[in-house]
Amino acid sequence: MNIFRLAGDMTHLASVLVLLLKIHTIKSCAGVSLKTQELYAIVFTTRYLDIFTDFISLYNTFMKLIFLGSSYSIVWYIRRHKIVRRSYDKNQDTFRHVFLILPCIVLALLINEKLTFKEVLWAFSLYLEAVAILPQLVLLQRTKNIDNLTGQYVFLLGVYRALYIVNWIYRYFTETHFVHWITWISGLVQTLLYADFFYYYFQSWKTNQKLQLPA
C-alpha cells in the first residue's frame, strides 16, 4: 500500500468520524442528507460482501467493518434517535434515491469486469458511490448557513477522493497490469462533483467568511 492510498483512507475515516461526532455530541443532524447516508450504506454493503469470500488483509477487513458500521450508525441516528431525528429536515432533503440507484443498476449490468453476481455488485457500488454525494450537495446549496462540521465532512470526503486518484496514478506506474477503467472513470466523475464545492470552500476560508453556496 502506498502513502497516497493510506492518506486517502485516513481522510475518509476522518470524514466519517467528524460526522458521527457531530451527530453524537450536538445531537443534531441539521444539514446532513439522510439520502446520501443511505446511499453510502448501500454502497458499502454491496461492495464489501467480499469480506465473506476474500481475505485481503486485516487492515482491509477492519476498515470495511468500520465503514459499514459507521454508515449504518449514521442512518440509525437520523432515522431512529429520539433527539437527533427531530433536527432532520426532510422537506429540504428531497432527492429521490431511485433516480440514482436504477441507472447505476443498469450501468453495472452493461459495464462490468465480468458478468458475475459479485462483479456486477462491485461495479454498481462504484457507480453509486460516484453520485451518492449529490443529495448532500443539493442540501448544502439549499441550506443558508452551513455549519463548520458539515462543511468539513464534505471537504474531507473530497480530499479522500482526490488522494485516491493520485494513488491510482502511482499504482499505474509502479505495478504491472494495474488497469481498472471502471474504478478510475467513476472515481474521476466522483471527484469532479466536488470541484464546485471546493471552489467555494476555499473562497470562504480565504476571506474568513461563513461557507455559503450560491443557489
Binding site: R5, D9, D54, I56, F178
Partner: peptide, 10 residues
C-alpha cells in the same frame, strides 16, 4: 502479492 488484487481498495 495480495495487495495487487484488483479489489483491494476501499
Amino acid at each position: 502479492d495480495k495487495d495487487k488484487h484488483s479489489h483491494d481498495e476501499l
